[in-house]
Structures are given as C-alpha cells and as structure tokens.
C-alpha cells in the first residue's frame, strides 16, 4: 500500500481533515479494501510529510466514523464491512441532502417546489436520471 497522501497547505481544510477525506475516498473507491492494513501512523506521517500527531488525530476520527479499526499493537485496518463503500456514499449523500434542504430553506422554497426542481434537474441529466425511474441498490 502506497502511504503517500496528497496534502496541501493551501487547502482550507485542516491537515487531519484532508487525511480523513482522502482515506475515506480511497475506501469508497475500493482502492483500499475491507480488512486491508493501513500504513502505520509514523509511515503515513513520514511519507506525507505531516506531523505524527496530525495523522493520529485523523486515524482517531476515521475510527470513530467506523471507516477503520485499530487493534492494540497491531496497527489499523480498513473496517471489515462489505457494505462500507456503499454506507460511506450514503452518508455523503445524506450530508448533501441536508445542505440542499438548507439552501432551499434560505430561498423559501416549498417541499413541492424542491421536488419539482429535483425532477427537472434529473430530466436534464439523462445519465443520472435512471435513479428516478428504476430503483437500484438498497
């Protein structure tokens, strides 16, 4: 497993958050599979050139979020759940929905108007529209 993450000081997110987001993205994409060992905290810190404390904080957050599991003395592994990538994507969708509702509320849109906008957008994007006609996934 290549330990280097691409972190940037000009990214407005704090370093640990960039690590959390990139590890989560790698798990979602299937780059890092369930049960696979993660680089050690020191290895990831050295390869990505950030402090050990920053990586430790990121791993703590990832563990709380259920993305990784840490075994005492054995290091961390990607959480062993087959549905993990899907679960992470659903969480991401839930965040986006909350943001959507907040924007709609600021515009004073009714729920009906929001539904109509969503349908219109789906119709205008045929690739994404399949989700509205055929039900896939859980």
């Amino acid at each position: 497993m290549n330990a280097e993450l691409f972190l940037s000081a000009s990214d407005p997110r704090p370093m640990y958050q960039q690590i959390v987001d990139q590890v989560t993205a790698k798990v979602m994409a299937g780059d890092w599979a369930a049960g696979e060992a993660l680089p050690s905290i020191r290895e990831l810190a050295a390869a990505s050139r950030v402090s050990v404390i920053t990586v430790r904080r990121a791993y703590d957050e990832l563990e709380r979020a259920g993305v990784i599991a840490t075994r005492q003395g054995k290091g961390s592994v990607v959480a062993e759940r087959d549905d993990l990538p899907a679960a992470l994507m659903r969480e991401e969708l839930a965040r986006q929905l909350a943001a959507l509702l907040a924007s709609a509320a600021r515009l004073g849109l009714t729920r009906k108007e929001l539904h109509r906008l969503l349908d219109q957008t789906a119709d205008a994007n045929p690739g994404a529209a399949s989700a509205s006609t055929t039900r896939t996934g859980r």
Partner: peptide, 21 residues
C-alpha cells in the same frame, strides 16, 4: 506541518507551547 508541538519564544520568554491543533 512537521511539528507535533509548537513552541513560541519571544524576548527570552516562553509565550506558549502546545500541540498545533
């Protein structure tokens, strides 16, 4: 980026020393 702890020194005194976060 690299330091676990950052220590600020000014005019011969310790201003602060803490973890970056």
């Amino acid at each position: 980026q690299l330091a676990d702890t950052i220590t600020f020194l000014h005019k011969g005194r310790l201003v602060a020393s803490a973890d970056r976060n």
